[in-house]
Nucleic acid binder design. Structure first.
Lengths: 160, 160
DNA sequence: ACCAATTAGTTTACGCGTCAATCAATCGGG
DNA sequence: CCCGATTGATTGACGCGTAAACTAATTGGT
C-alpha cells in the first residue's frame, strides 16, 4: 500500500483502500497530466487534441473514411463527431463528401493543408514523448505497455 | 515494437514510431476506457466524475476547504471550479460559505446528504476497481503503480 | 410493393475544461 | 494613508463528451 507519491500529490490523509484503486487512480492521474502537455502542444498549432486525433487517423488511413468509422477509432460518442468534423472542414483541413452508393454515408478525407499541418507537428510531438517518458528504460516502457494492455483485457467482454 | 494490442484496437497500419509513443498512447487509451466505466457508475447516482471528485476531496478533508484548494487537488483549471461548486450547492451536497477573516476566500463543506450519497457509491466503486484491475496480480499492480509514478517524475520540473 | 426495423448522421441540451478578462479584497511600499 | 500589485473568485466565450430525440436512406420480411 505504501504512502506513495500519488497520496502526497493528492494530499490524501489515508492510504488507498486497495492496490487496484491506487493503480486506477495513477492511470487517471498520469493521463490527465500528460494530456495537459499534449493539449498545449496542439494548441500552439491551432488544434485541440480531438482535432489532431481525427487528422492523424485520416492520414494513417490515406483514403476517405466514413464519419462513424472515425468516431469509432476515437472512442468519441457518435453525436460529438459532427461538430468536430464541421470545424475541421471550416479550417480547410479535411473534405466532406457524401457517398453516391449509400447516400446516408459521409466520407471525409484529409486535405493537403491538413497533411502539412500534421507534418509540422510530428517532430515536436515525438520530442514531447521523449521528454515525458524518455527517462524510463526500454524494458520499463515495454513492461508498462504490457501491463496497460493487460489491464484493458477486462473491458473486452463488457462494453466495447 | 511488436504489433501489439493497441495497434489492432486503433486499426493502425504501421507500428509505433517509438516505445515512448506506444506507452503514452496506451496510458491515454486505458484512462479513456476506464473513465467511461466510472462515468457510467457515477451517472447512475446523478453525479459526473468531476462532481464525485469534489465530494470525495471534501469527505477526505473532513473540514471546510477553500475553493481554490479543491481545484488544486483536481487538476481543474481555476475558472471551471465555480460552476462545478454551483451545481453541487444547488443539489444540496455541499455548503458554500465566505470566510470572515479574508473575505475573498470561499470555503466549501460537504453536507450530510453529500456524505450519504458518497456512502452509497463506495461499494460499487470498489467493485468496479476490482472488475477492471482485479485480474492483475498484486505484484503487477505494484509495478504498474511504480512505473506510472516514475513516468510522472518528468513533470516535476516543468509545470506541475 | 409495402411497412417495420435498422443504420448513418445530425440537432439539441447540459456539464466540463481552458483561456482571457474582470472584480473585489488584501498586501506592500512610499 | 494611499496607490499599485497580488490573490481569490467569478464571468463569458468556445470546444468537447454524453445522452436523447430526430431525419433520411437503406434493408428485410411478408
Amino acid at each position: 500500500m505504501a504512502g506513495g507519491r500519488l497520496q502526497r500529490e493528492l494530499k490524501k490523509r489515508r492510504p488507498f483502500d486497495s492496490l487496484e484503486q491506487e493503480a486506477a487512480l495513477n492511470i487517471t492521474r498520469t493521463a490527465d497530466r500528460f494530456g495537459i502537455c499534449f493539449t498545449r502542444l496542439f494548441r500552439e498549432h491551432g488544434l485541440t487534441p480531438s482535432q489532431y486525433n481525427v487528422l492523424r487517423i485520416l492520414r494513417g488511413e490515406g483514403k476517405p473514411l466514413p464519419i462513424l468509422e472515425v468516431a469509432d477509432r476515437m472512442l468519441t460518442a457518435v453525436p460529438g463527431i459532427t461538430g468536430l468534423i464541421d470545424r475541421l472542414e471550416a479550417m480547410g483541413l479535411l473534405d466532406r463528401e457524401r457517398s453516391t452508393e449509400d447516400r446516408r454515408v459521409v466520407f471525409v478525407t484529409i486535405t493537403e493543408p491538413g497533411l502539412q499541418l500534421l507534418a509540422r507537428i510530428d517532430a515536436p510531438e515525438a520530442a514531447l514523448h521523449r521528454r515525458l517518458l524518455g527517462h524510463l528504460t526500454p524494458d520499463e516502457l515495454r513492461e508498462l505497455t504490457r501491463l496497460l494492455e493487460k489491464a484493458r483485457q477486462s473491458l473486452d467482454d463488457c462494453g466495447g
